[in-house]
Each structure stands twice: as C-alpha cells, then as structure tokens.
Design a protein around this nucleic acid. Structure first.
Lengths: 152, 152
DNA sequence: CGCAAATTATGAGTAATTCATAATTAGGGC
DNA sequence: GCCCTAATTATGAATTACTCATAATTTGCG
C-alpha cells in the first residue's frame, strides 16, 4: 500500500522534467488524496507552499498528465480530478448522490479491456468504464432519514 | 430507422410537460443531429425559431433530460451533448483526433451491462463505457499526410 | 557561479453553464 | 372561445473551471 516504486524526483527526471517544489507538492497531494479537483489540490498544496497559485497548479497538473505521471479523470458534470495510478487501465465508480469516486480494478489489466463491437468505424485503443450507483454511506444515510426527518 | 414510437407532443404530455414550440424544435434538432452541444443545437433550432435564446435551449435541454426524453453525454474535455436514444443503455465511441462520437449498441441491452466487481462499496446501477480511438476518416487522413509534409 | 531554457506567477480572458427575475404562453375551466 | 394561473421562456448577470500571454523566477548543466 505504502510502496513507493520510485522517488518522485527520479520519476520526474526520467521524463526529462525538472524537479521543482511545486511539482513534488502536487504529486504528494494527489498521491495522498486521489480524485480531487484542481482547486482542492491547490488548497492542500498551499498548506506547505503558501505562495503557489491556482494557475500554477493547473499548469503542473497539465504537464504531469501529459507525461503520464498523473491521470486525469472527468466525472460527468463536475470538475476534472487526478490520480497517480496511471498505467493500470483501472476504472471508476461514482456515487450519484455524494459524488465520491472509487477506483475499480480492471480485470484484464490492459487496455482496451472490452472488445470493441465489430462494425464500428473506429480503431479502439481504450475502453473507459464508469460505474454509477449509491455508495454505502449514502445508502445508510438514506435509510436513516426514513425515521429521522431532516430538512436540508 | 425512421420509426417514430410516439409523437413528441404525446411524449411530452405523458411526462406532465407542456408542449411548446421550443421543446418540439429542440427535440427535432437533437433527433436529427445527435451528439451536438447546446450551442450547435441552438444554432439549428434558431433557423426555425429565430427568437429563441441559448439560455432557453439550456433550460429545455435540462428539463427534457430530467424527464428522460433526452440523454446527456459528457465527452471528456468538451461540452455536453445530447441524444434521443434514452432507454437502451447504449455506449459511445469517441475519436480522439476529430472528436466525432458514435453510438455503440450495448450487447446486454439492460443496465448495468457490466458486472460490478465484488467488494465495491457501492450499489452499481449503471455502467457507462466510453471507447476511444481513431476513426476511419482520421486514420485515412493521417495515412495521406505521410507523403505530404507534416511538421508538428 | 553563471547562463539559458524551463518553470512559475501574474493578470486577463474564455467557454460552458447556471441563476434570478421579468415577460410570455399553454391548457384547464367557465 | 376566453380567462386565469402555473408553467415556460426571455433577459441579463454571475459563476465555474479552465486557458492563454507575458513577465519574473528557478533549475541544472557547464
């Protein structure tokens, strides 16, 4: 779980990227709290690096995503979020009530994990799956609200 | 192909919605050109209904989507688009180069079409699949550009 | 240590969408 | 067919999530 395949500085240099405090802080923040949008990442990073701007966080996220150090995920209807699991073609489950995102391991492991249907006018490279439903927390809360009555 | 399961006015009324020119025009536009963003739908609708505003198109799209007369699809990285196929749990294929979207029939037909992995802290209701790749057009174009000059 | 290229900060700008409120319209009742 | 009220649409402003241009700073090689 807490395994570190490589140190961030090393990984950055391997991609031909310079090692900066900003990038390290963003990588740490995303690793520790995956599936957070840029604003939240900025808030977290700013606790260590108060001078960092949101725009820089956007730039860093963009660059690191382009170099596959981060993976970007666009939940339908809300801001993009980021994660450090980049090379395992995993999928996502979203709670339609609270928006919480969970990783879902891909059974195949390699992209594309689903066969593209024949006759499609497209050479399929990746298949992304998004599961949607109600998470345990929300389900429990909903059940509880049956007896309690709580106006928002 | 050109089968009309119901007339739009009837379908609207069945949902308890009023029949308005704006709604009919949006439904027709989306039916004829699926996977278009709100701006494009507005442009098309405005040819028949020049006084309609973009904001009204947004409102109409929102209401019709809420009542399942339309389905909204969020392509990662670009504007939401809409379609009239709402109850068949079909999926989508996106060309990563030109952005063109194609429908992909679901083999199962019913949601969820994929089994949720055991141990997931979520009651899965739907599984949406997005295939990404290069469409025939773009592939052909790319092949042609090999002989022509192509500096990045 | 110093320089050039890469990176970050600053500030403005944009696209897609939402919100509040006023004007209009659809459709049931008379 | 006409009225009335609730539903819908128009108008205009505001917001969110970014992107872009440019100036200041910093990294890492020599």
């Amino acid at each position: 779980m807490t395994a570190m395949q490589h140190s961030w500085p090393e990984t950055l240099r391997d991609c031909g990227l310079r090692v900066t405090r900003q990038r390290l802080a963003v990588l740490d923040a995303v690793a520790e709290h995956p599936h957070q949008p840029a604003e939240a990442i900025h808030a977290e990073v700013a606790r260590r690096l108060p001078e960092i701007t949101v725009q820089s966080v956007y730039t860093v996220l963009h660059d690191l995503t382009a170099h596959q150090l981060l993976r970007r995920f666009d939940p339908p209807g809300s801001a993009a979020c980021y994660e450090t699991r980049t090379h395992d073609n995993h999928h996502h489950a979203i709670c339609t009530q609270c928006g919480r995102i969970e990783d879902v391991d891909c059974v195949h492991g390699e992209a594309p994990c689903l066969e593209a249907p024949a006759g499609l006018g497209m050479e399929v490279e990746v298949a992304d799956v998004v599961f949607r439903g109600i998470c345990r927390n929300c389900a429990a809360q909903n059940a509880g609200e049956h007896k309690a009555a709580q106006p928002v």
